[in-house]
């Protein structure tokens, strides 16, 4: 029973992954004239040289062969060669990924803390005017352009207050503002969902029953609200990952940091499709894997799903 569900779910994930690869291939490799041409025409190469290069990049082969060739490459970890840098894309990814992952991980941690803080104040805080005020904060956070927030933070903390040096920053100084920049917009949807969940759980009859048992407010939160309100936020993990990555790309551009963001920007600017295709497929793969993990983990954490399936 469990095995069949697992197989089904993994199959679905693979299907989406294959479709994503195909879409990326169609968008980037198949449809636009071809990038090689654009790039090397600018360099003033002769048609003979061009033909040679095209042959080397496999751009002359029929579409289906290019597709199979690229797909085969992705499956074996060969993401092609960057036209601009002339090095394997896999190498570029390996060089740039760690910095971005660190940034994203720190930002995610900060966003989670901020969201918990906001949700706590909005649902449990003392005064009702304070709760109302805090409830409007996530909408504001969502409305702020990431890049602008980054610039404003630099303006405030580096130029006005002088707290964070921009000339020769310490490692923590280099990361503090980018992390805050990404974390603020990411925290907003998390906080909104948390607030909604906590409100919903507090209105559940089982909370009234707990209070009728004599439970204090803190007891109700610890034993009844926490798990029921936090559990559904797991399903947001995939979407949040996508936003984290997008936020990191923009933020790295604002702060001039090296990473996936810088790589992406260069790839777009230079029409370096192999690089962009690899970034798209790898991040989609991460999205699919995260969602798969959440789907498989959820029944372990929620007894309703776990036992329900066993009973059926």
């Amino acid at each position: 029973m469990m095995a069949r569900h697992l197989a089904q779910r993994v199959g679905q994930a693979l299907l989406v992954l294959a479709a994503t690869f195909t879409l990326a291939f169609l968008l980037l490799q198949a449809l636009p004239g071809d990038a090689v041409l654009i790039k090397f025409l600018e360099l003033g190469l002769t048609p003979d040289q061009l033909a040679e290069i095209r042959l080397a990049y496999g751009a002359d082969a029929p579409l289906w062969r290019q597709y199979l060739h690229t797909a085969g490459g992705f499956l074996t970890g060969n993401f092609g060669t960057s036209i601009r840098a002339g090095v394997p894309v896999a190498q570029l990814l390996a060089e740039n990924l760690p910095a971005t992952l660190l940034l994203a991980a720190l930002a995610f941690a900060a966003a989670s803390l901020l969201a918990l803080l906001l949700a706590g104040l909005a649902t449990l805080g003392g005064q009702s005017w304070l709760r109302g005020l805090v409830r409007s904060v996530p909408s504001l956070f969502v409305a702020v352009p990431v890049f602008w927030l980054g610039i404003m933070l630099i303006q405030l903390f580096s130029f006005q207050l002088g707290w964070i040096s921009i000339i020769s920053p310490e490692p923590w100084e280099e990361l503090a503002l980018p992390v805050a920049t990404i974390a603020v917009p990411i925290s907003a949807p998390l906080a909104q969902v948390l607030i909604r969940n906590i409100d919903a759980v507090l209105a559940e009859p089982f909370v009234a029953v707990a209070r009728a048992k004599g439970a204090s407010h803190a007891w109700v939160l610890r034993w009844h609200v926490a798990r029921n309100a936090l559990l559904p936020t797991l399903t947001m993990a995939g979407v949040l990952f996508g936003e984290l990555l997008g936020g990191a790309v923009v933020t790295e551009a604002v702060f001039g940091l090296n990473g996936l963001g810088g790589l992406t920007q260069q790839a777009v600017a230079n029409q370096d499709v192999a690089v962009l295709q690899a970034i798209v497929v790898v991040s989609a793969a991460a999205f699919v894997l995260i969602n798969l993990a959440v789907d498989l983990l959820y029944p372990v954490l929620d007894p309703r799903l776990a036992r329900g399936r066993r009973a059926a």
Partner: peptide
Amino acid sequence: AIPALLLSLSIIIL
């Protein structure tokens, strides 16, 4: 499955 910014960048390349 493709992060929004990356998808729009891909379409812009096209």
